[in-house]
Structure formats: structure tokens, C-alpha cells
Design a protein around this nucleic acid. Structure first.
Lengths: 350, 350
DNA sequence: ATGAAAGCGCTAACAC
DNA sequence: GTGTTAGCGCTTTCAT
């Protein structure tokens, strides 16, 4: 049982040293464990630490110039769909590297994002990982470039995770995944299965992920010599409601689509609901596919065929690369995506 | 654009002071903003800070004795079902109170939990919030009591969130929710709807939440004068597979249950799947209800009737109470739960 | 309203 | 192997 209980007086290394009858430096060496200390002395110090319930002060260490042992994860919102998976990857890798993980959210507000980055600079976080939601592309690049420089100047590393790169030469690590390729593969899969009228539901204007996915959608059509009716690309928010509303709007206009490519799994959930309400059977009448492969995908009815994004691995890579990087200013990886076939898509028999 | 770019030389308050032609103390006062400084002086200092891109060193501040502005959230696993909601509550409240939030996971390993608590003591986190998963009750109480004291001694506050209290007098904040009441209300709802053979699926032995939920299940039966066949309480892990397996086992034995109370929504997902595979219609043939009201619940088919647990509010309360507490050692709240009626339960007509 | 000095707890650099 | 000195960057006295 500790001797003192008031929150005011925590034992310091000096206290330990005094109690063990050695100097503070010796106690420090024992604590760090990276320096030879005579076994008997060592034992005495250890004993004193136990007796006093000594706890090192991480801030004092950090002040001395040591690394802070902290990486920071910055998200739009803690309940976003990939949050858990990416956070898990980040946290696991951070733990594996002996770091603790700070969690911050911005709610999509650029000002708050800047404020958070400022706070993290004060904390000297070793890495600041910005995840998802690439907003307004006009100022995005310069904002990220400014963050990258200011973080570098305070000894931190900016990591853009699932966000576009601000360009070469900017001191940042970029960990992306292949949106275009995944959309291409999925579209090709539908085309190979005989679908020729495929709706893309959930275009969020200005979002980098949307643009890339639609690019893959287009390229697959082109490669398969399939005509693409632009009016099949439907706007819609990245939400259940967005998916349901977009589907309702589409069906009010035309009912000839044999497949729906939802921009995300969440959107797909809305699409499925809207179709069910209209008595459209999936996959018998219409095939529905998604993007992301979040846990929900396999719980939907029918289980969703979708594009797998390696969220957890994104998180791990973000930490790994930020912590062990070479001398080059910038660093960029693109992780692969692939389709996961479940029950929501079937061949279209003409 | 900052003058220096190497990660080695960050400007300090002294640099700012020198550039502004004042003393470090004055610069400090301007930075803190809590002390009168002559407007012209103030302006000069602010200017210097901008020019130098000055960033305060949070560790130096913390070393000086100031609060660290950090709360820590400790979970079993980042992908746990309530993780996102509780984390959101914690993060939001922390942000509202000007704190940053550390995120740690233990993977259910008590040793790692202890290691994490030790790390957080070093960081002087103002609050350490332990969430969910109360394991082996034999040593649990003493472990938590020890954590509470050691954290208190290093100036931190232990918060148990959705975990049982270690008892009165222990310096910890406990934020629970009403498991027994929620289970009671749900069971009563089923009984009121004419169900008399209700299976409880997903008893995890030794888990406090399980015990409390089953207690409510029993009490409702007793209050309604309904006999409770003990063999209807089925063991099973808190997972989709656990729910499916337990349902399969139950149905292999008997098929007379008209309702299934799944221990959690995740378990309910497994139950639904197993019933679907057997051609049992929900809710026409059998009613299924869950516990937690995670987002998944409304995406299941049919949408799940379940017990709502205010996860986000749990997180908020955890932070709020830890930060603003009176002089009493212990502090405990129990947040209410209530049933959410959706489509997976229907009256049973004899 | 501003400044000077001391110290928070730890560790790198240098003695002994 | 162990002790001494100095200093990380900021803030709290205590002057002025």
C-alpha cells in the first residue's frame, strides 16, 4: 500500500535514490535499465521503487528531449464506419511499437482540424494521422502542405490515411488504398455477369474517393465495350438515408437497372431497404454491391458482395511508416483492394 | 513560413521573448492569457510568436505542475460493438472540457491492463476510463481497488464504465447502466405479448452483465407468475457464431420456444441467421430480441427490437464526473435503459 | 505591468 | 560502477 495518498506528493527519482542510499543518476539508470548497474545496488533501488510505488514522470522524460511515445489519430467522427477498424490498426501497431495513441475528432470542420493539429504539435506527437474525408479540393492541398511543414517543424510526422497526397516533396506519409481499382474490379464483375444497366448510387461531389470510384466504374465499362448512361450515376449522401433516397429517386425515373453499385456499404444498406420496400428482390431481380466491406456488410440480408478495403492494415501502415522512415521527405503507398463475393449479386440472364 | 525546418530546433518562449524584447515571463503571460499585460507589449509578443511559429511545449507545462489535459480510454478491443459510441461520448466530452483523449486496448488480458494503467500513471492522465468486460470476479474487486489507489496516488482518477463497482470507499467513479432493469422490461414486454416459452441465449459465465440480465429475466417471469424452465437459459459466447451455435443447439433439443432473448444484439444477429437457415420466420413463428441497441440492430432483417443502452452518454458521464467531482472518495451513477420496439418481436397468439 | 530566480523530474555528459 | 553538473521549457514565487 502506498505511503502517501494525497494527489499532491508523488515520489520522484530523488526520493527513490535517497531511500536506496544512492544518487538520482543511479536510480535513473536502474529505471531505464539500459546501463550497467551493480546487482546489489540495482536491487536496493528496485526495492525502494516498490516501497515508494514510484512512477516515472513521462513529461519530465519528454521534456528532456526523449521521444514522447505518442501517435495521434484524427478522425471526422468516432462513429464513422471504418473508425473502429482503422483505430484498431493504429492502436495495435502503436502498442507494438511501444507508443500510446491519442484520439481526436474534427466533425469535418477544417477549423477544428487545424486546432487539433495545433494541440498535437504542443504534445509533440510523433505522428499525426489524418483519416478520411478529403473535403473541398481547392484548398485541401495547401492546407495539408502547411500542416506537413508545421508538424515537421515541431518534430512530428503528418500521415494522410485514405486521403489524397498533397504532392511530392511535401514532408508527409501517405497511405492510400486503391479506390479506382476496386471499383473497376467490381464493375467488371457485374459486367461479366451479364449486367449492362448498372446504376452507381451515392456520388458525393468533391470527394476524392467518389471521383476515383467513378473513374473505375467508367473504365470498366469502356474496357468491356459497354455503353455508360451518365444518368445512371446518381448523387446521394454517404448514409443509409442517402442510399434509400437515391434509390427511390432512380426507381421513380426508371426501373431498368439490373444492378446497383452503392458508393459504400452504408449506402448499400439504404439501397437494400428501398428495394425491399418496393418489392424488388435482391439478387433475383436486381443485384446490389457495395464498397468498404465493413462488418455490417455480412450482416445485411442478403449478405453484401462488396469491395474489401484493408482498413486495419491502413492503420498499421500509417503508424509503421511514420515511425520508421528513410530520409526522403515524402513517402506513399497504395494498398490493394479486392472484391468479396457474397449473396447480393447474381448473374443477369437476358 | 517557419524559419527553421530541422526537427531539432523548435523556438522556445525564450526565443519569443528575445525577439519581442521582453522577458520570458512576459511572453509566458501572453501565452497563458490569464494575466494583465500592456496591449503594446502583448502585441509585440504575439507578433514574435507568429514570426517564429511558436508552439508551446505541453510537457514542459505539465512538468511545471499543471494538469496534463489528458483523459484515457481503455477498452478490450477497438472493434468491440459499443466501442465507437462510448469513444465518441468520451472524446466529445473530453474535447468540450479542453482535454485530449488517449486510447488504449487490452485484448481482455489483465496483465496488459495493468501495464496500460502503469503507462497512464506515467502520463499523469487526469482520468483513466476502463470500459466493459468485467472478467473473473474473484480477483476483480481487489484489482480495481488497487488500480484506484495507485491512480489516485499519481493524481489520476479511475473510472469504471459499464463495470461493477469495487465497493464503497474506493476512490473511483463508477458509471453503469441498468442491465437488470432493461432485461426485466424486455422480458415483461414479451410476457405481456403472450410469450410463455422464452429462451435466453448467450449466457457467458462469470460476466457481470450476463448475471444482471438473467436476474432481470428471472424477476420478470416471477412478477408475471410465469414458470421459468432453467433449460431455456442457454450458454453461448457474445458473438454472431455464439448466437447461431446456441440457437442450433436449442433447436436440436426443442422447438417450442416462441421467443428468443439474445444476450446482445450481436448474438441476436447469429440467432436470426440460424433461424433463417432453419426456415423459421421472424417474427411470425418466433420473436427475437436483443440488448444494446448498436447501429447494427436497425440494419438487421427484421429490424431488431432491443434494449437501448446509452453508450455515448456513458462515455460523456465518465469524463464529466471524473473531472468535476466532490470530495467524496467514491461516486456512482446508474444510467437508465429502455426497450426500443422494432420489427423482430410480435405477439404470440395461443 | 514587468523582470529575476528558482525549480518541476529526469537524463546526457562528463568526472571520479 | 557511481556521483556531479547542467539543462530540457515553462511557470511560480517574489521583487521592482
Amino acid at each position: 500500500m502506498p505511503r502517501r495518498s494525497g494527489p499532491g506528493k508523488r515520489p520522484t527519482l530523488a526520493d527513490v535514490a535517497a531511500r536506496a542510499g544512492v544518487s538520482a543518476m543511479t536510480a535513473s539508470r536502474v529505471a531505464a535499465g539500459n546501463y550497467p548497474v551493480a546487482p546489489p545496488t540495482r536491487a536496493k533501488v528496485l526495492r525502494a521503487m516498490r516501497d515508494l510505488d514510484y512512477v516515472a514522470n513521462a513529461h519530465a522524460r519528454a521534456l528532456g528531449g526523449a521521444a514522447t511515445g505518442t501517435v495521434a489519430l484524427v478522425l471526422d467522427d468516432a462513429t464513422g464506419p471504418f473508425f473502429a477498424s482503422i483505430a484498431r490498426g493504429v492502436e495495435r501497431q502503436a502498442a507494438a511499437e511501444g507508443r500510446l495513441c491519442l484520439l481526436c475528432t474534427t466533425h469535418g470542420d477544417p477549423e477544428r482540424e487545424a486546432a487539433v493539429v495545433a494541440l498535437l504539435r504542443e504534445r509533440r506527437a510523433e505522428a499525426v494521422i489524418l483519416v478520411g474525408g478529403a473535403q473541398d479540393c481547392a484548398t485541401y492541398t495547401e492546407r495539408m502542405t502547411a500542416f506537413a511543414h508545421s508538424l515537421e517543424q515541431s518534430g512530428s510526422r503528418l500521415v494522410l490515411c485514405g486521403r489524397p497526397s498533397p504532392g511530392p516533396g511535401v514532408p508527409a506519409t501517405v497511405v492510400e488504398y486503391d479506390n479506382e481499382g476496386g471499383a473497376y474490379a467490381m464493375t467488371a464483375y457485374l459486367l461479366d455477369n451479364g449486367h449492362r444497366t448498372i446504376a452507381y448510387v451515392g456520388r458525393e461531389p468533391g470527394l476524392s474517393t467518389t471521383d476515383e470510384r467513378i473513374a473505375g466504374f467508367r473504365r470498366a465499362h469502356a474496357d468491356h465495350g459497354a455503353a455508360l448512361d451518365e444518368s445512371l450515376i446518381r448523387p446521394g449522401a454517404f448514409s443509409r438515408e442517402g442510399g434509400a433516397a437515391a434509390t427511390a429517386a432512380l426507381w421513380a425515373e426508371r426501373t431498368d437497372a439490373t444492378a446497383v453499385f452503392a458508393a459504400t456499404d452504408i449506402v448499400a444498406a439504404g439501397v437494400l431497404r428501398a428495394l425491399r420496400e418496393r418489392g424488388v428482390r435482391v439478387p433475383e431481380d436486381v443485384s446490389v454491391v457495395g464498397f468498404d466491406d465493413i462488418p455490417l456488410a455480412s450482416d445485411l440480408t442478403p449478405a453484401l458482395t462488396t469491395v474489401r478495403v484493408p482498413h486495419e492494415q491502413l492503420g498499421r501502415e500509417a503508424v509503421r511508416r511514420a515511425l520508421h522512415r528513410g530520409p526522403e521527405a515524402d513517402d506513399r503507398v497504395v494498398l490493394g483492394t479486392h472484391i468479396v463475393v457474397r449473396d447480393s449479386a447474381a448473374p443477369h440472364l437476358p
